[in-house]
């Protein structure tokens, strides 16, 4: 009958459920949410693309004149499984997982992390 005691006790305590859109639980420090790439640090080695289990990373050429060093990762978040292997593989610590986790969208294109064009390369 100890359940009944707890039942009556719970009538007068606050419910544990979070009213989600109004209340949000902060994620833990090590939480892996959306991927963030620091393209300035990136050297274009392509280790992240090689190790990605979900083939979410593709190396695209943005500076053809630099050869293999001119590639940068293009990350498709809709394929990403948030395992964090790219963060481990990156020799320059250019990839980080930030706490943002509400990634639902109706526009699939917004889930592509496209590397920016380098400043000098824009042709007239």
């Amino acid at each position: 009958m100890s359940v009944i005691k707890e039942l009556l006790k719970n009538l007068f305590t606050k419910p544990i459920t979070l009213k989600y859109p109004q209340e949000r639980k902060p994620p833990a420090e090590r939480f892996r949410g959306r991927v963030y790439v620091d393209y300035d640090k990136c050297i274009g080695c392509g280790l992240c693309a090689r190790d990605c289990p979900a083939s979410a990373i593709e190396m695209v050429v943005i500076e053809p004149e630099k050869g293999i060093r001119g590639r940068r990762p293009l990350i498709d978040l809709s394929r990403c499984i948030f395992c964090g292997q790219c963060e481990l593989s990156c020799p320059r610590k250019a990839i980080k997982f930030i706490h943002e986790y509400e990634l639902a969208t109706s526009d699939k294109k917004s889930l592509l992390l496209i590397p920016p064009k380098p400043k000098g390369s824009q042709k007239p």
Partner: peptide, 10 residues
């Protein structure tokens, strides 16, 4: 588990 590993399930 989330505190240790950064995720709740995987």
């Amino acid at each position: 588990l989330e505190m240790i590993t950064g995720n709740r399930v995987l």
